[in-house]
Design a protein around this nucleic acid. Structure first.
Lengths: 254, 254
DNA sequence: CGAGGTGTTGAAAGTGCTCAAATGGCGTGG
DNA sequence: CCACGCCATTTGAGCACTTTCAACACCTCG
């Protein structure tokens, strides 16, 4: 059921593709600090991949040869227990880097990565990435900035699990999809499966469904399928955030 | 009840103290990579502090001027919500660095730090630390290694909250205090308050107490006060780890 | 001895999970 | 076009676990 991509069987990058890679990567603060020459060199060795839904990008504990950057679609990062349970570490989308922590320590991926919506991503050779970290202080500084930001994100995640109930966690999830400054009603589309959102928030699908109902009772929110209407950000914010040590808007991660 | 230390009122480091700082820091892989000269320069600007129980080292959102390194005692890292609830991020001891994520992003501490047992720590000027990261690739590489390791630690923490019940989390906590290779019985002393352990594991003190009782029923473990006798690591391991995606021994963090 | 802190225990309420079943949408094959 | 089956989602009922509130034991310290 899992399809493995061999990262080494990709075609050589065409010039046109390399240009595309450069353009995509330079949108990320991490690569934006690189001199054009370094970026071009890295891009030449990188590849663009398209992936179908459910495609596995790598598996936990596999030897890591490449790091990845999402262009489109959604990627689930997760670990599996011997019993077959799955712990979702994160679900990330366009503009996010993953697999990069393998550069340090044991050069094995610490989690599995799987596409949950069809999309595309760029793969970058680990060695080139590592080389940049050793030669460019700006690059490594930026890398540390990204890592530090992610750490805060994780701290917050853990805090939420401890202090918030399920309805509040769901509300917080929706809140992050809203435009914080926008007054008045806004319409949000849930970015992926409710089942997957549940897993990401650390709850069962049934609990998620009930949590959504409760949110509907407790706040003026309206939900139809995957469309959520938030009549007023402030009300929702008051409902979710009063148990949290962070102040809204608390945008995190890269 | 909170006592604030002003990091700037410390005395100038004596030569003898500087030697001590060098010796302590060089025990950490992060500082071990530094050339003797760089380390000496950093140590000169660093200070040793002794702290009593409950002393506050810094508060969340405070401007960060120094990073810290524990020599002895235990330090609680936590955040507080407007409602007065406390989320314990971690409880760390000798050999651990903290406050260092403030170097990146906004130069504010992302959490509060408080001594929970009397002890001592070294404070290092943020600027000197930052300078090293920009000038020494080895140092910044090591820094990233530490950060990456911590990230895995956090991933595991989150997984535990999702998949393990309280008794198993407690068992896992005890297991980490054991010598993994040692056959036969071993005696462990709980390193700090049960109340604090409960908070670190994300549960109420009562739940911790009951979890301990249940652990006593389900495994051949014996507990008297803060002394735990583990007759056999394997039994405990089987009890706690079968729901976890990591394989014991799963030592983490620095 | 009394006060305060730490840890334990009991009872009741709340929360989330499990298992089971129903609902509804959607694509496929007839 | 419709019937069917599959899958995601919802709903229900019962259960297990955790929290809450309250009471109490124990220890230490003044």
């Amino acid at each position: 059921m899992h399809t493995i991509i061999n990262p080494d069987t990709g075609h050589h990058a065409s010039e046109r593709e390399t240009g595309h890679v450069i353009q995509t990567l330079s949108g990320h603060p991490l690569f934006a600090v690189l001199p054009a020459q370094d970026l071009a060199q890295l891009a030449e060795k990188s590849q663009i991949h398209t992936a179908h839904k459910d495609q596995v990008i790598f598996l936990q504990d596999e030897d890591a040869h490449r790091v990845y950057f999402i262009k489109s679609g959604w990627v689930k990062l997760f670990r599996e227990t011997p019993e077959g349970d799955e712990a979702v570490i994160d679900v990330i989308s366009s503009g996010y880097l993953f697999g990069e922590t393998a550069v340090f320590n044991d050069k094995k991926y610490p989690y599995s990565a799987q596409m949950t919506e069809a999309g595309s991503y760029i793969s970058i050779p680990l060695l080139g990435f590592e080389h940049l970290m050793l030669t460019s202080p700006h690059f490594s500084r930026e890398m540390m900035r990204v890592m530090a930001k992610f750490r805060r994100h994780q701290d917050q995640e853990l805090e939420h699990r401890t202090l918030q109930n399920t309805a509040q966690r769901i509300g917080c999830f929706i809140l992050r999809l809203c435009k914080p400054d926008m007054k008045g009603p806004q319409f949000i589309e849930l970015p992926y499966d409710k089942t997957l959102i549940a897993a990401k928030l650390g709850m069962q699908p049934e609990t998620f469904s009930r949590g959504l109902s409760r949110l509907r009772e407790d706040t003026p929110i309206k939900i139809q399928g995957s469309i959520v209407e938030v009549p007023d950000v402030l009300t929702l914010q008051h409902y979710c955030c009063h148990l949290c040590s962070h102040t809204y808007p608390c945008k995190d991660l890269i």
